[in-house]
Structures are given as C-alpha cells and as structure tokens.
Design a protein around this nucleic acid. Structure first.
Length: 315
DNA sequence: AAAAGGGCCAACCGCAAAGCA
DNA sequence: CTGCTTTGCGGTTGGCCCTTT
C-alpha cells in the first residue's frame, strides 16, 4: 500500500499542479463521498475538479468503485461466494469485472485480489497434496476435490490456474472437452444460484420462483458439461432465484433517499437496463426463454449476460 | 526482542474501447 | 474519417502487518 501523504509531498501543493497519488486520506474520502451523494456520477475529471480533490478522475473513479460506494459489501468472502467465483472463473477466466457483476457488493479488484492470494494458492495446494509424487511427469489425470467445491482433474486445474493469460480459459475448456469424448457433466454446484437440471442439451429460464424451499440457497440442481466437439452443453432447466437485488431491496428499506438514488444510478449504470426491468416486474426477472442446444464458448459468454444478476445475503 | 519473509490489498499503470466534436 | 478525451479493465506494484525464525 502506498503511504498516505498528509503533508502533500506528492500533491499539487508546493505550487505545482501535480496531482496527488497514493493512499486516500479520510478528508479526501469525505470530499468525494459528499460530492457523489449530492451530485451523482458525472464526468470523472469534473468530479475530481468540482469536489476539490487534487486527484485525477481515474483515481476518483477507482476510489469510489472499490471503496466508497454505499452498496459495497465488506468483509471476508463467504463459502458460497468462493464457490461462485471459482465456478465463474472456470467459465469466464480472468474477466474480473464480469465475475464481479454477478457478485453484488463485490468489486473486480477485490475478487481479483482474493483469487490471486487465496484461491489460486488453495488450488495449487490441492493439486500438490493430491499428487505427492507429481514430479514433472504428469501421466494419468486424477480428480482433485477442491474442498468440496468441485471435482476437476489435475490437468484442468493446472490449466485454469496457470493459463491466466487466456481471457476465457478457453484452452483449458478445450482441453477438458477433448478429454471428455462424451457429454460429461460437472458435479452440481451446491449453494449455487443458477442451477440446471432436466433435458440434456437445452435449458429454459424459469421465472417467478418463490423461495428456496431447502433454505440452502440452491434453486434446483443440474449440470454444466463439456461436449466432445469442444462445445459446452447444458443439462437442465435453469432456475432463477427470486431477484431481490440490492438495488430493489435497498430501495425498500433505506430511508435515505439520496443513498438510494445513488445506488440506483450505480446499479443501473453497471447493469444497463436489466435491473430496471427486474424492479418493474416485481423483483422477478422475466427475461425471454432461452433455448439452445450446444453452445460454443463465445455463445456461452454472450448468454451469460442474459443471466440475472445474482444476489444473496451473506451471514 | 528483533529481523526476515510472506500475505494481503489499495492503488497505480498501460492499454483498448467507447464517445464525441 | 480522424483525433482527442473519457471510461473501463486487467495486470502489477509497493507498503503495511502478521507470522515465523
């Protein structure tokens, strides 16, 4: 972390127009927070200027998104979040912003740090402990249990872990697909919020489900798997949980209209019009039915955007 | 008790895409 | 169409802090 610069050695004081860098002081946070609450988000360089901050707009944006936003969820990641991150990362690769978009209250930076510091290490450990004599000769891939997360082969895990340059880990998916000559479902994700079951090769989006009857946060069960031709197959109906997004929930509960307004701005700007639709339709996503047989990776990526944004309460 | 090492995480950097004149 | 500005993203850095030696 960079030192806060209370004396302003790096900043514009001293007669120059040099912008401040490094850690944000509480005063700067206050200024930015007050400005954002009163004026909402505009052009970030204007925000920096009008809020009286000697920071570049970029720095203000980052500070707001990663730290000051009222809808941020602080604290450790829950096991459900961990699981979801791993699962999404296996599909999306290092597309942290897209992963973060499905974890309300979490930032891409947070998830990225969490992945690099914790999960990556854990996956590596799982790999090494599961193969005590794994010198450099990898022969038969074995299944590795990631602490109850999912069961993948060593090759798969290594590909996922090491192939961080691949934007979508497509090479690892291809590797899995090649190895799996037939549809081979991955184990269902416990506590996941978009789960799949039913007719192989197709899924429907069922909407308007009420509550998770089991109370474990899981709305149905099913499998996502890889097809021998390198495509991704879905086995099942996609059950979408009732979407009481942070946005909608806070709209109902908060008495602070200003904060509510800000939240709406943030979420609407992040999610385009999807959340507005959700809210207008009584907190349930009433998106069009999705049908498909086999997905190529890029198609899957596309269709991930049509998934509702996940929301669950931690603790 | 002090030094070394490693983990964590806030923030910066560079690049690409989008928007606009 | 072109060039400039702004925004957004992912990778990387650097410093605090905790643990180990």
């Amino acid at each position: 972390m960079r030192k806060p610069d209370p004396q302003g050695k790096n900043n514009t004081n001293n007669g120059t127009n040099k912008l401040r860098k490094g850690l944000w002081s509480p005063e700067e946070d206050d200024k930015l927070m007050n400005y954002m609450l009163n004026n909402g988000q505009g052009c970030w360089s204007d925000v920096a200027r009008n809020a009286g901050l000697q920071r570049c707009g970029k720095s203000c944006r980052l500070r707001w998104i990663n730290y000051l936003r009222p809808d941020l969820k602080r604290g450790a990641f829950s096991p459900q979040e961990e699981e979801l991150i791993i699962h999404l990362h296996s599909i999306l690769g290092n597309r942290w912003s897209q992963i973060a978009a499905r974890l309300p209250g979490r930032t891409d930076n947070e998830i990225k740090n969490f992945w690099n510091s914790t999960i990556k290490k854990r996956l590596k450990n799982s790999f090494s402990t599961s193969s005590p004599n794994n010198s450099d000769s990898i022969t038969e891939p074995r299944d590795v249990n990631l602490g109850g997360l999912m069961s993948l082969s060593e090759h798969d895990i290594m590909a996922m872990c090491m192939d961080s340059s691949s934007p979508s880990s497509s090479s690892s998916m291809q590797a899995m697909a090649i190895r799996n000559q037939q549809f081979e479902p991955l184990p269902p994700l416990n506590n996941c919020y978009t789960s799949l079951s039913g007719v192989p090769g197709y899924f429907n989006v069922s909407t308007g489900l009420s509550q998770d009857s089991t109370g474990d946060g899981c709305y149905g069960s099913g499998h996502l798997g890889f097809l021998g031709n390198g495509n991704i197959g879905i086995e099942g109906d996609l059950f979408v949980p009732p979407l009481e997004s942070i946005c909608a929930e806070e709209r109902n509960t908060t008495t602070d209209n200003t904060i509510s307004k800000i939240n709406n701005n943030i979420i609407n700007s992040n999610n385009n019009n999807k959340v507005e639709t959700l809210v207008e339709n009584g907190n349930y996503w009433e998106g069009e039915n999705l049908r498909m047989g086999e997905w190529k990776l890029e198609d899957l990526m596309e269709d991930l955007f049509s998934f509702p944004y996940l929301d669950f309460q931690v603790e």
